[in-house]
Design a protein around this nucleic acid. Structure first.
Lengths: 355, 355
DNA sequence: ATGAAAGCGCTAACAG
DNA sequence: CTGTTAGCGCTTTCAT
């Protein structure tokens, strides 16, 4: 019987701890999982052995033996976007507190890539999975339903989900902005969007916006940025837009970064906001309070999404979730600032919570 | 012998695949790891069995058996910061291509939290670990050296690392900005910083800046933002600064977001940039090209850090790394735009690569 | 409260 | 190239 080749620094195992504490390995295991079912004397012995040896449990072995890993997969389009990264951070904090480790994947807005990610995450035997939005491949849906683990789709609301849904309606976001602009009789509008082809949610906001404006007899000119929010392109597009449609009374943007670019371009062109043109964004990013003028925008519940997703997932691991708990519309706030309304100072904290 | 309780959807194992393909489990295992060492006929049989059953390998079992997981831990202060999240994305792409899964943790700039993370990541038996910067607890250092796995400290350069280092000198960043301002005889300066207490790297940039300015006989007023880049506070601090030090000829900021806030405050106060005051940031965020005026800043090699870290880590998994490869200074570029120099248009692409 | 024993699903010698 | 055989380090009955 050839001895298996050992690698450099021999790892300390539970058996080593057991030997030093003079108990059986299973007692150590019990101590680690349910400390109060072990006598105080042995508990102390075991703990000091652990400390002396610097023992770290082997998650792989534990996961294999129990066939339940304390892992939760999370798939977002990109972590490079503060919306998702803030949700991730909150989600992580809540799940970590419950002893779960996050496995994060980014799809780059690609359903095929998402499918790969789902596969590779399922290989980890996760306790649950969090996806962004509803756009999954057939195969992904099958994988997920076969796996039998709880799944939350977050950051959107409206369609029938696979299992559980925590988000808000992007269509409503567009509608809210539109209604606000219409209230000021701004009928000739434009919508400038990033990643229009790939980002369904940006597209939904646009549709909500357009439908509302057009229903009131207004017009909407769409302009799409080719890549990610590339600042220079934003300026150029704005420039062309204003040249081709000089009567534009308001510009809505798919997010605040785009709006920032538009704002600077207006400044270059000596256009007064909101006197000459109104401007609105999406996201309520930190800087929007301090632009000149402050930017009207929509606050998505990024942290609440993380928190509620964590809670729902954890709940579903311990009890049955009723059908009416499975879908959560967190709503959004319209934050009116001076970029759309000259006397908006007093209204800075005004908001509109969705039903 | 009581049968173990089986959970709901019985998982498909390698044994199931083997049975269906009428081969032994180890042949399946071999096929999965080194397909060309299996005969074409069986390979086909196995693959079709895998497809029919929808088999997904169990990473935990594989990792336990081989005692080498294809996991790499990455610890950053926060994923909510585009610097780190962009590095993460690049790092992830490169490591994923090599078959590794990232385990991401965020310290919230807290060394104690970092230690916890290192522990919990080591429990996964990772193939390697990536940390941000040099500020680790003694205990963290011990854990790491005991573990014997390759470690890269990224996003900083200068101190002696634990194992490998990929980054750049933040002190140099401050120096570069300072030298640029001094060249225009701006001697009365200020530095506005976020998270000054927690973020060593922001502090290093400040020190590099101050040392250089003072060595040339100038002055530096420091202002610290209490929390994260909170836009309103930035405006207020700037306001106070300009009131208390009306002779300030230049403001350097710990990052571009802070500079943006300062820029808007200057605009409110009708101060001309750069005529009345020069302004510089750090990060070369997308929007800096399109502000009015465009912002002078420093481009940190965020993607290169990810790419080189990945490569170094992968290399160190397959071969011995020489001492002179263990430390990589990627340098930074100073990007001069009009916020510090009126005729900067032509110089837009000028840069200064560090030695 | 504790320990013995039997796996979890896979990999890695080794023999054929 | 393929199959046999031992584990990897832990959890989980079950008996004591």
């Amino acid at each position: 019987m050839a001895k298996r080749q050992r690698r450099g620094s021999q790892r300390i195992t539970m058996g080593d701890v057991a030997r030093l504490a003079d108990v059986s390995p299973s007692t150590v295991s019990l101590y680690l999982r349910r400390p109060d079912e072990v006598s105080a004397r042995r508990a102390e012995l075991i703990q000091s052995a652990i400390d002396r040896l610097g023992y770290l449990p082997n998650v792989m072995a534990g996961g294999l033996a129990s066939s339940t890993s304390r892992v939760i997969g999370v798939i977002v389009p990109t972590i490079t976007n503060s919306f998702f990264s803030e949700t991730l951070e909150t989600l992580e904090r809540h799940l970590r507190d419950a002893g779960y480790q996050l496995l994060i994947g980014n799809t780059e807005f690609d359903a095929t890539r998402e499918e790969e990610l789902v596969r590779s995450i399922l290989s980890w035997n996760p306790a649950g999975l969090v996806l962004t939005g509803f756009g999954h491949s057939r195969q992904t849906q099958r994988l997920l339903s076969q796996s039998g683990i709880p799944v939350v789709e977050m950051w959107d609301y409206g369609q029938t989900g696979l299992d559980m849904v925590v988000g808000f309606s992007h269509h409503d976001c567009g509608r809210l902005i539109a209604e606000h602009l219409l209230a000021q009789e701004r009928l000739q509008t434009a919508f400038i969007s990033t990643r229009f082809q790939r980002d369904v949610r940006a597209r939904d906001r646009y549709h909500g916006f357009r439908n509302t404006i057009e229903a009131a007899g207004g017009t909407v000119v769409l302009r799409e940025l080719s890549g990610r929010s590339h600042a220079e392109e934003t300026g150029q597009l704005t420039n062309e837009l204003l040249r081709d449609h000089p009567d534009t009374a308001a510009i809505a943007c798919s997010n605040d970064m785009v709006a920032l670019g538009v704002m600077f371009e207006c400044q270059r062109q000596r256009l007064e906001i909101p006197a000459d043109i109104a401007l609105a964004g999406f996201g309520n990013l930190d800087f929007t309070t301090s632009t000149v003028p402050p930017l009207t925008t929509i606050e998505p519940p990024r942290h609440e999404i993380g928190q509620r997703t964590a809670r729902l997932l954890l709940d579903s691991l311990t009890r049955r979730i009723d059908d009416d708990e499975r879908r959560l519309d967190l709503g959004v706030r319209l934050i009116v600032r001076q970029s759309t309304q000259d006397n908006a100072c007093a209204l800075r904290d005004d908001h509109d919570r969705m039903p």
